[in-house]
Simulated scan of single mutants.
Amino acid sequence: MQPDPGSRNGVRAGDVVHVGRSASVQFDGSSALLFRVIRVHDRPTYDGWTWLDGYQLNRNGNAVKRRTIFVQIDGLRPVARRTSAPKRVSVPNTRPYPASSQLPRQRN
């Protein structure tokens, strides 16, 4: 993976990567997985290796397990990269009742 602005070692939160044998021998064959990165650790380690926090994804892209993995950066294969922050959606005020300021005053 090539470094980009805002990334650490070429990987950043939001990236989805394929983790196989080229990333670490523990992910050989049926142990390979898709992984959504949520954190890249900045602790010192061997040159070209890093710790990643994230979610193991199933075939549908749904998170099935949170994991911390130790991998070689050059062995990760990018699947998808988040291009921007998720957009917030505004929800209209659909109160089934009027706001308290709109209620008639009660007499004491």
Rank of each mutant, 00 (worst) to 15 (best):
V17M: 02
V17S: 01
V17D: 02
V17K: 01
V17Y: 01
H18E: 03
H18T: 05
V19E: 00
V19M: 02
V19Q: 01
V19S: 02
V19N: 01
V19H: 00
V19R: 00
G20W: 00
G20M: 01
G20S: 06
G20A: 09
R21N: 12
R21D: 08
R21S: 12
R21P: 07
R21G: 09
R21V: 07
R21I: 06
S22G: 09
S22Y: 04
S22F: 04
S22W: 02
A23K: 05
A23Q: 04
A23D: 03
A23R: 04
A23H: 06
S24V: 04
S24F: 06
S24R: 07
V25T: 13
V25N: 14
V25A: 13
V25W: 08
Q26H: 14
Q26W: 10
Q26K: 13
F27D: 05
F27T: 05
F27S: 05
F27P: 14
F27H: 07
F27Q: 05
F27W: 08
D28H: 11
D28Q: 12
D28L: 10
D28S: 11
D28V: 09
G29C: 05
G29V: 06
G29N: 10
G29Y: 03
S30D: 14
S30H: 10
S30C: 08
S30G: 07
S31N: 09
S31R: 08
S31L: 07
A32T: 03
A32W: 01
A32E: 02
L33S: 09
L33T: 08
L33A: 12
L33H: 06
L34E: 10
L34I: 05
F35M: 13
F35R: 10
F35G: 07
R36A: 15
V37D: 00
V37I: 13
V37L: 07
V37E: 01
I38Q: 11
I38G: 11
I38C: 15
I38T: 15
I38H: 06
I38P: 02
R39I: 05
R39P: 04
R39M: 12
V40C: 12
V40A: 13
V40M: 05
V40Y: 01
V40H: 02
H41C: 08
H41M: 06
H41Y: 13
H41D: 11
H41I: 02
D42G: 14
D42V: 09
D42R: 11
D42M: 10
D42C: 12
R43N: 15
R43V: 15
P44G: 08
P44V: 11
P44M: 04
P44R: 04
P44W: 03
T45P: 06
T45I: 10
T45F: 06
T45V: 14
Y46N: 12
Y46D: 14
Y46G: 08
D47W: 08
D47P: 09
D47Q: 14
D47M: 12
D47A: 15
G48H: 08
G48Y: 08
G48K: 05
G48Q: 07
G48W: 06
W49F: 10
W49I: 12
W49T: 06
W49D: 03
W49N: 07
T50Y: 03
T50S: 05
T50H: 04
T50I: 14
T50C: 11
T50K: 04
W51G: 01
W51K: 02
W51F: 11
W51L: 03
W51Q: 00
W51Y: 12
W51A: 01
W51P: 00
L52N: 02
L52M: 06
L52P: 04
L52S: 01
L52I: 05
D53P: 04
D53E: 11
D53H: 08
